[in-house]
Amino acid sequence: MGKAFGAVLIIITVVSTAVFFFHDFGGMSLWLPVDASEHGHGVDHQLMETMYGSGFLFVLSQILLGLFVWQASDRPQGWKYRIFPGGAKPMVISAILLVGIEILTLSFVGSKVWAGIYFTSAKPGALPIDVQAGQFAFYFRYAGVDGKFGALHPDKIDEGSGNFFGLDPRNDEAARDDIVVATMVIPVNREILLTLHSKDVIHSFYVRELRLQQDIVPGLMIPLHFTATKTGRYEIVCTQLCGLGHYQMKAYLEVKTQEEFDKWLKDQEAAQ
């Protein structure tokens, strides 16, 4: 029975680890998608470091367990048990050293990555985009020609007439040229400053390729800044349970070249 346990455990460990090395299964990738943001590199690096460090611990401890159980299976009657050389001390020391060093490294490096994303503010000249989340859609707002966002009036929100943000163009000059769209279009290699807010419950803004996830909390205006480095079309999905349509709540993010973006913006302004 012990041999079986050891063998099964080692097979499980090998198979689990193998998926990590061969994660592409004919069009189905069980791995992170391409990284399309400036800070994403740091996140990926941190993740790989953790993967190797903790993967080593995983394989080592599972194999040791399997091995010891295997050994323990065919010992003779009247076997006199042996104590692990050194007793508990090497366990404690190795745990503190191995794990201690790992977590020290991880938290120092990891904190830097985190700080790079969240402790900095957007540079002047970043493109501001206002994001409104609601059951079950995202809407994006650009300031328009005047570069100013109109004020938000929750009481004026009316999905039927397309006033998703609760703008008041009649009385509010800044709101008149605001561009509201359902797909977020941004220029590549330019910093974007999002202001996230929700009109009803908590939603979340998640773009895999940007390595970004941020809850959108009603009552708060949460800033989030990033720079996309690759053009393409990515999905923005909601990751915070927000009600029955949660699984369908998504939008697209289109990263265009500066020229394409300018043209798009001009078309939108003209349409206002």
């Binding site: 401890s61 367990l65 010891f68 159980v69 323990a72 299976s73 010992r75 076997w79």
Partner: peptide
């Protein structure tokens, strides 16, 4: 894990 070592289970 260390306790499993050297046992007759």
């Amino acid at each position: 894990i260390g306790s499993v070592y050297g046992a007759r289970i």
